[in-house]
Design a binder for these strands. Sequence first.
DNA 1: TTACATGCAAAGTGTTTGCATAACT
DNA 2: AGTTATGCAAACACTTTGCATGTAA
Lengths: 151, 151
Amino acid sequence: MFSMNVKKILQDNDITPTLQRIVILNYLMSSSKHPTADQIFNDINQDQNVTISKATVYNTLNYFIEKNLVIKVMTSKCTQPHYDYFLKPHFHLICSKCGKIIDANYDNFNNDLNHMVLEAQKNEFKVSNESINLYGVCKTCLENDEEDSDN
Amino acid sequence: MFSMNVKKILQDNDITPTLQRIVILNYLMSSSKHPTADQIFNDINQDQNVTISKATVYNTLNYFIEKNLVIKVMTSKCTQPHYDYFLKPHFHLICSKCGKIIDANYDNFNNDLNHMVLEAQKNEFKVSNESINLYGVCKTCLENDEEDSDN
DNA sequence: TTACATGCAAAGTGTTTGCATAACT
DNA sequence: AGTTATGCAAACACTTTGCATGTAA
């Protein structure tokens, strides 16, 4: 069974907690990766004893986004967006070489984020969630680059 | 003629400054909006005396992204990404209702951004650029909502 | 029971690619 | 002159949609 939390989260957000929605949200919450729609579709249909159509995966993700439960994350190359459940504020380090997405945070991040929200309020803009991405090259890919240049 | 800057920027980034690339970068730099590939294609083919194929628009934008000259910005609903030239660090307020993208900034933004870059360095991640988006509802759409609820 | 969600397959849309032509240094 | 970019059109991939069936409260 799924953690009771998942169902409750859906209900708290005025989302009818159907089996498919529970499974998808549970998957997003438990996996530390940031899956694409395709990965969600494949993993759930393989590992769980639940079948979900692709249409439902897409519809559900869009619904979650609309309800501010999930955000889309773009890697720089990739055409497919990744989906991220927002447990607590964090930002992403996205490798332009391998496409890896790393969650990042630090003690005063909430503070800094708040500065941005304040600036938004000056524009009379009501913030509901955020997507903060730093693009660059990850440790592994940097090391690979060094090896290449040694040749 | 285009500002000499545009050509120089391309050369400084090891990008052969062809007419199409100059026109596209010039368009991205001079328009304060954050156009989609489609808007770039249409606007340039209408307003300037230059023709650019859609393939070239896409190829060029991807090339600019690879060279860290431009970033993709996703609105929450829209399927089409928007493209943003990065003159100086800033962040975006993106309205989930109307899709408007507002550039935002404040005095210490660079400072806050630097905290994130430092955190990235702890992960031995080398940052090249960033995309910081706050999603929510803009002033205009908030006002429209109020009107609706008055009925 | 009534409204709402799901699944299938087909349609739609945005993006990429191969190859001939043209442009850049 | 040699390399690299462009343009066209076709191929590709991802996402959405319509409608019949199934599910939730």
